[in-house]
Design a protein around this nucleic acid. Structure first.
Lengths: 319, 319
DNA sequence: TTGTAAGCGTTATCAG
DNA sequence: CTGATAACGCTTACAA
């Protein structure tokens, strides 16, 4: 492996000059530049990027923390991040945590060790204070509404969205409304829980503990949901389902069992994934790709920002 | 940022000794080890991993090339890779190529520049010769059946699978069989094309050009397929669909338009994704997660291997 | 068991 | 415009 020193020798110049042409600096005579270029050509030179990293203290690597990559929500987010990364000539290091705090810590460690310049956490498992401790080592951006002036974030207003969706169902006459969610912990879930409770309070509706179903991530979880509902004495007449995958699972399950939608059960999904369109599911569109893009931009930006993105209710056939 | 030198000073030992305790080498007295440990503690020391990389020439970073991350096929493959990476204490660098050769080249460049130790190419766009040129810089493993003694690979026998699926449909009485595929180019597609032609030849069946439908990746592409089929004078009675997403799209589309399955149209999907189970789609299960794991293991192994994984036809309700 | 010192391949400073 | 030379922070012979 020839290095910058060899090139210098071959071209009859100093390493500084070689470095200059390598990095497209001005102030190099045409003549010497060509000599270096030729030497690079002749030797099939390749920069050792690790040396560059050591020297500059930067890697142009951004970490991305997410629980699963095989879920449309995160896959779409990742798509947006990847797109923007490409445009800005950054690469991504993936951390699939499955919500294990220890894996999130690993990502934070890499930031500490300077192997990545910044970190995007799509869904957080560890405590906010742990995040804050690591801020000194690089940018960390989150996908949730924490209004901290030292952490950037991009998010949608989950409280408002949830509340409005509930109102929408209320207007349609529903009084027993349940909801399905991925995990119960997490900022976003808490906000939705709060919206749910506030809504019930406002209209003096009874809060049924069993109407809240968690661990709903994938298509097949829709079946589990329906099984639970079938066992209820007083089942909900409508469901808010955070994720169109699960919503689709429920819809398919109902079709099979001849449970009429929206006759017997109304569904509002989330995200507006392609499947929602195919199955004609009413859903709340979350601009995931755009969110991803913005997260990335914040990751490489030197100033803090908190950006809220707006969502759109897409009325289709399940309400 | 304190470094190894500072630690040495603080602990009153040499940098070598510090390095030794850092890397859990033997031959360090308990006393000095503790002194170093204490210094690390006191100074909140963090290794600069880039320096390690420069010094060792390794990064414990493996590149993963795939066209899209938001497709279950690749997401599942990635899941397997990520799982195994975690177990072996490696990290992954993601390259989303969208089948652009230029992005694949970028990944190969990173290998050249030693920013990644090896490269896993889940779906290849560039020429095999380009790959071979880069073999000198690190392992490259492929997800296709190229029997080269210098490149490792993990794959399923797409020719055989396709052929057998066609036979299966033939036994069921089908004489006009079409197929849907992601992209027409690519080793795997070629093998399937060949199986398709051989099959038609064997039974003296007419080859209809229009029965081959490409660019089928996502759920929504199922609709496009059905639109095409509706315009045919002599439509196929069965479809081999490489990917359950698209198969599901077709099934849903047929349901909507009251095209009976398998009465009027039979479907065999691929991968056995969760959605196939939900929609009761007959499919060929490909062990994607296991494939991913094996790909990773090959990426870090020092010897070449070519491993074929077996698949399973799962008979359900669409044939 | 410990330490010295020579790399690893760049970039950056500063003097010319 | 050009070039020495000192970082950058760690690993690893080699010597003791």
């Amino acid at each position: 492996m020839t290095n910058i020193k060899d090139l210098a020798k071959m071209a009859g110049v100093s390493v500084t000059t070689v470095s200059r042409v390598l990095n497209h600096h001005p102030y190099v005579s045409e003549e010497k530049r060509n000599a270096v270029l030729k030497a690079m050509e002749d030797s099939n030179y390749q920069k050792n990027i690790n040396a560059v990293h050591l020297s500059t203290g930067k890697t142009r690597l951004i970490g991305v923390v997410l629980p699963f990559s095989d879920h449309p929500y995160f896959a779409l987010l990742l798509k947006g991040i990847a797109k923007q990364a490409l445009e800005n000539n950054y690469k991504l290091v993936l951390f699939q945590t499955e919500y294990l705090e220890s894996r999130e810590i690993e990502a934070l460690e890499m930031l500490k060790q300077k192997q990545i310049d910044s970190l995007i956490i799509c869904s957080r498992a560890c405590d906010l204070s742990v995040i804050e401790e690591h801020l000194q080592y690089g940018n960390i951006v989150l996908c949730e509404n924490i209004m901290k002036d030292n952490i950037s974030s991009t998010f949608v207003n989950h409280y408002e969205i949830f509340y409005e969706a509930l109102e929408f169902l209320y207007q349609k006459g529903h009084r027993r409304i349940g909801y399905c969610i991925g995990r119960l912990s997490g900022t976003n879930s808490h906000k939705r829980e709060r919206a749910y409770r506030d809504f019930h309070e406002k209209y003096g509706l009874a809060y049924h503990h069993e109407y809240v179903m968690d661990k709903c991530f994938y298509f097949e979880d829709g079946e589990k949901v329906m099984n639970k509902i079938k066992e209820m004495d007083n089942p909900p007449t409508a469901l808010l389902v955070t994720g169109d995958q699960v919503a689709a699972g429920i819809v398919v399950c109902c079709q099979r069992q001849n449970i009429s939608i929206p006759g017997k059960m109304s569904i509002i999904g989330f995200d507006n994934e392609p499947i929602a369109k195919m199955l004609n599911i009413t859903t709340i569109e979350i601009p995931l790709v755009e969110m991803g893009k913005n997260l990335f931009l914040q990751a490489i930006s030197s100033d803090i920002s908190n950006r809220e993105l707006s969502v759109k209710l897409i009325e289709r056939g399940t309400v």
